[in-house]
């Protein structure tokens, strides 16, 4: 059990901790429970692996590669398809342990709608929309890199579900705050900020990219300063509308998590850090609770956006 001090509410979800395990890092919610000492109860919510309309085999190897203070990944949305997730995987999850959030991906607007609709008719607690996927009908540009396309995806998903909708924003765009504004108008209930930054690693002997997909998403401590700034920028839009942010990108300690809260996050995402230390979440919980006691914060929400900018 986590400390009562860490209980919070996000998009109507009651969470025992402000930590959210990030999509793509923890499979479909049960993989890490094999590690002795790990418990889903130590986190407030778990975002399941990105799910598409039908089975996706994913990319050719190598899919991951360590880079300075981080790692690249290009998994390629390997998943069994939404029907298999809803019919075979969701029934195996213990919803008393934590909140489970589906992660919806698609190549077309229609696919986003189809997957969201299927999850709407399931016990899932909330739906996160991954708008960083390439739009195959419009030249393969990622939906999330264009504010108008982002808003269209959110609007379409909003139209088929009443469950809380969380939009995962990409840092690979010019004005993330403008994009966030459009997504709020389109009906999102919250944001995940940020998705990975696109990057490359090269093997100088073979003169080829190390990653099978040539490029991959950079995560880990290397992207934390970028993520913090993006959370700060998105928060400027969100606070007027009371829209919460799950701050994420390189969080590896309680201190990192607190920085994100101060920048404007209401909850924090942990992903790559779990690969380093599978038991990191209880440590982050304890560190945040200590900080709250030391600084007189009575609730997690009191910390959100407490950043005092230099004059």
């Amino acid at each position: 059990m986590t400390e009562p001090l860490l209980k919070t509410e996000l998009c109507g979800l009651h969470m025992d901790s402000l930590i959210v395990l990030l999509s793509g890092c923890v499979g479909f919610g049960e993989e890490y429970t094999r590690v002795e000492g790990f418990s889903n109860r130590d986190v407030g919510a778990i975002c399941l692996k990105g799910t598409t309309g039908s089975l996706r085999p994913g990319n050719a190897p190598h899919r991951i590669y360590e880079t300075p203070a981080g790692m690249l990944n290009a998994i390629g949305l390997q998943n069994p398809g939404v029907d298999a997730v809803v019919d075979n995987i969701l029934p195996t999850l213990d919803f008393s342990e934590t909140r489970f959030i589906a992660n919806v991906s698609g190549s077309t607007l229609e696919e986003y709608i189809e997957v969201t609709r299927r999850f709407d008719d399931s016990p899932i607690d909330a739906i996160e929309i991954n708008i960083s996927c390439p739009n195959v009908k419009e030249g393969g540009v990622a939906f999330g890199n264009d504010p108008a396309m982002s808003a269209r995806v959110v609007e379409a998903c909003r139209g088929v579900t009443d469950k809380p909708l969380i939009t995962k924003l990409s840092p690979n765009q010019t004005d993330i705050a403008a994009n966030a504004k459009g997504c709020i108008e389109a009906g999102t209930d919250g944001f995940s900020v940020i998705n990975t930054l696109m990057g490359m690693a090269i093997d100088i002997e073979s003169r080829k990219p190390v990653i099978g997909n040539n490029q991959g998403g950079l995560s880990g401590p290397a992207i934390k300063p970028v993520a913090l700034l993006k959370v700060h920028q998105v928060y400027q839009v969100c606070r007027e509308h009371n829209i919460p942010i799950i701050g994420q990108g390189g969080i590896n300690s309680a201190r990192d998590a607190i920085e994100f809260l101060l920048a404007g996050a209401s909850a924090v995402g942990v992903g790559t850090a779990l690969f380093y230390d599978p038991l990191i979440c209880p440590k982050i919980n304890a560190g945040i609770a200590n900080y709250m006691r030391q600084h007189g914060f009575a609730s997690v929400s009191d910390m959100t956006g407490c950043l005092q900018l230099n004059g």
Partner: peptide, 17 residues
């Protein structure tokens, strides 16, 4: 063998056909 991140099945980073 393959490059691995989590090694518990969570990330699907180490797959083979």
């Amino acid at each position: 063998e393959e490059y691995m991140a989590c090694a518990v099945g969570g990330c699907a980073g180490c797959t083979v056909a």
